[in-house]
Design a protein around this nucleic acid. Sequence first.
DNA 1: CTGAAAGCGCTTACAG
DNA 2: CTGAAAGCGCTTACAG
Lengths: 373, 373
Amino acid sequence: MTTDALPGSAQPPVTTRDAAPVRKVRKVSGRRGGAVTMHEVAARASVSVKTVSNVINGYPYIRESTRQKVEEAILELGYQVNVSARNLRRGRTGLIGLAVPELSLPYFAELADSVIRAAEERGVTVLIEQTGAVRERELEVISGQRRQFTDGLIYSPLALGPDDVGELAVVAYPLVLLGERIFGGPADHVTMSNVEAARAATRHLIERGRRRIAVVGAHPGEGVGSAALRVQGYRRALEDAGIPFDPALVAEAGLWHRATGAEAMAHLLDAGVELDAVFGLNDALALGALHELHRRRIDVPGQVAVMGFDDIDETAYSAPTLSTVHPGREEIARTAVDLLLARIDDPDDERPFQQVIADYSIVARDSTAVVQA
Amino acid sequence: MTTDALPGSAQPPVTTRDAAPVRKVRKVSGRRGGAVTMHEVAARASVSVKTVSNVINGYPYIRESTRQKVEEAILELGYQVNVSARNLRRGRTGLIGLAVPELSLPYFAELADSVIRAAEERGVTVLIEQTGAVRERELEVISGQRRQFTDGLIYSPLALGPDDVGELAVVAYPLVLLGERIFGGPADHVTMSNVEAARAATRHLIERGRRRIAVVGAHPGEGVGSAALRVQGYRRALEDAGIPFDPALVAEAGLWHRATGAEAMAHLLDAGVELDAVFGLNDALALGALHELHRRRIDVPGQVAVMGFDDIDETAYSAPTLSTVHPGREEIARTAVDLLLARIDDPDDERPFQQVIADYSIVARDSTAVVQA
DNA sequence: CTGAAAGCGCTTACAG
DNA sequence: CTGAAAGCGCTTACAG
């Protein structure tokens, strides 16, 4: 080692031929050269590397005095395990992948947040990949180079459909599927009861006296995915209450963004459709609808009640605050991580793939409050 | 190798003692055991491993016929480089860290998005870490275990201040600092001209005839960080125009969220402060203010113009759309990645630390439109 | 242009 | 409870 100067430091290079036995300040080195190795720790503690390794990995049967010697040496030398070497030896990386459409979409940003936290609790690190909800890139994620970096993948496709189950069949690493695009795939699957949740959301509106409930975000002609399932739940709730289904109340929105929600809402209003409530199939759509209603000075919830789906942070801050469906994002994240780690820990486990359905709950806020007469 | 069944497959375990010379379908294996090695490729192509390595790493002086033999063998065997082994040998991981407060905050979600894209173009992968803007965790990131995984770090602290420069001094890996909390630290630094941008934003309002311009999001008593700098820019613009500064127009908001923006706005209005414009020190604050104005049926921009800062996606979708400052997020991300990679590629480079200031621009939207008389 | 061989820093049977 | 040694799969001087 020739210099301790920071790389790129403005100071003149200092050649340290240190005579001092122990350095005062040991810099936090990244993975770069000259790092302390296990052998040096072993030498200093007068034990074998095996023993150092045992201490580090929490092997239980170590004499207390030995453990202490080793721990002291580790501290004194500022030793850190070389992760690449460990990975090479173990055949693991300690990293799991998370593939989502885009972090710019609040729901997925929050999902990523939850997955990172859940993984952290289990001592693993998350590598996020963005697919842009582009079919080609969603397929690329499955077999791309990044799979070399990770022990498994949590995969939330938006463009793939049931026909792509075959693409997943080639996967030989632990995989957990999220969402409603592919069912029965060769992977564990965490999802939610979209139909029941949407039914409950609609019932929530009906119970508050609403009868003309519009839906924003439908994907007409699509048989799979969240849109189809949630519209189905909406229709069930109408049936339950004996309210006839009126197609005029169903507004399409391909992308589930605020902008499309506002547009769809505008279409409904411009068409003169009579309505006293709006169910946005996700929160962004509902917030878009809310803005459009505001813009037209239509009182929420006085004239029109609004309901969303996802319970993103923002819904607690909008004016009025938005009632929505809490889809158990934390639970979904935790379950996905746990399922993945179970497969990673025991790759020869032959137990059948699991499908876990997360609990949802209705979050009642101001946008669906009962207005005092 | 005993079985090709998917791990955890419901099928009975199949012991493959394959006699067939070539497998039909090779599964995309993660990092798990039994993967093809370079030696097998070398054997099949009848060359040495060195040659295979050369082909893979694009070493130029290889006979065309040799290259083809090797490439065929790679294809036939479905060979993929073992990243852990390569990393161990190279002393690099190909991963860079990105530490941000929270992905749930739209600005940071979008920043992460941009950094991931920029890194992807350069062939490196990003590992995101969340600090929650908690001082303790921001410090932990600097020396934590994850630094073992990455070749360098892009670091965006929110809780640390100038006094913490010392904490960075121990860092011996390439580091790029983002934001306005720490200046002159031992690292490259990408920032923006907060003062000038805020001044331009305020001027934008003044040019549209506004004179009573409120500021939302100030941090009274704080000398560093975005809040102080942006308020400074605001005051300069007032001076430029000969408008006296009125402290009553400055509203505090510790956290820069939609909710606090709405609260601050409410305070201003309840206090009866006369105003014809609001400058939110970030977009979330401005959007919160916008909602509060809507709620009170105060027309934007008719009665009050609203300006934000950050140009998050959402500002293009709000009603009315929000004028804001475009801080060159993409440029910041790209520059940060490039600076970091330059240090990683040449760790012995002694060139002084750079401070790069990204260009900003004013985005004029409906919330500051000039209203026809 | 290509080969034989050392070594990156761990973990883990195998012995004792 | 601990040690000596092999080997994970690469890359890279060193030779030719």
